[in-house]
């Protein structure tokens, strides 16, 4: 099958690739680029395990073709932390037991990140509503909601710290 050239920026890195037009973004990330932190849980865009940020917006990468990502910036779970330091949301999910089997976790974190960038201090209800496109079968969501609330706090604190460093 013929291929098409696409240029994307994935986790901060400019990438040129040849892809089949029918290839889904999630398969492009996982199989062509080896970014296996993005998971596939359903065929119907319900479960959200494949959530990534495309130009900053949470997108289910199983509903988007790789060619549609041409010229766009994609952030997957592998791209949210710098070096070995965990992102505050990653820390929060670990500390507050926001996961059990770990399969939905990447998608949960990316959807939450998208939410927290729009709304720094969401209520429990807002978090539950935002996460309703992400399914978890292990936790019953309670600890995920607690993780997002705690992550929100950590992000606010970190931002304040960084702001203070700039001011100095």
């Amino acid at each position: 099958m013929s291929t098409t050239k696409i240029k994307t920026r994935i986790n901060g890195k400019q990438i040129e690739s040849e892809v089949e037009p029918r290839k889904l973004l999630v398969h492009f990330l996982r199989e062509d680029l080896g970014l296996t932190g993005t998971h596939i849980g359903c065929d119907t865009s319900n479960c959200g395990a494949c959530t990534v940020l495309v130009d900053g917006k949470a997108i289910k990468s199983c509903t988007m073709l790789a060619v549609q990502a041409d010229g766009k910036e994609v952030t997957s779970i592998e791209g949210i932390s710098k070096d070995d330091e965990l992102h505050p949301l990653q820390k929060a999910f670990l500390e507050k037991h926001g996961l059990q089997c770990g399969y939905c976790t990447s998608g949960m974190i990316l959807t939450s990140l998208w939410l927290l960038r729009k709304n720094k201090n969401p209520t429990e209800e807002e978090i539950r509503k935002s996460l309703s496109g992400n399914l978890c079968r292990c936790t019953g969501y309670q600890r995920i909601v607690e993780s997002v609330m705690y992550g929100a706090q950590l992000m606010i604190e970190k931002e304040a710290e960084e702001h203070e460093m700039v001011m100095r």
Binding site: R30, E31, G34, L35, T36, G37, T38, H39, I40, S76, I77, E78, S81, L86, Q90, K91, F93, L94, L99, G102, Y103, T105, S106, I109
Partner: peptide
């Protein structure tokens, strides 16, 4: 190791190539 999962570094069967 749960810390793998928050980093997207799990070793699920579909990750094997």
């Amino acid at each position: 190791d749960s810390s793998n999962f928050v980093r997207g570094k799990g070793h699920f069967v579909d990750d094997i190539k």
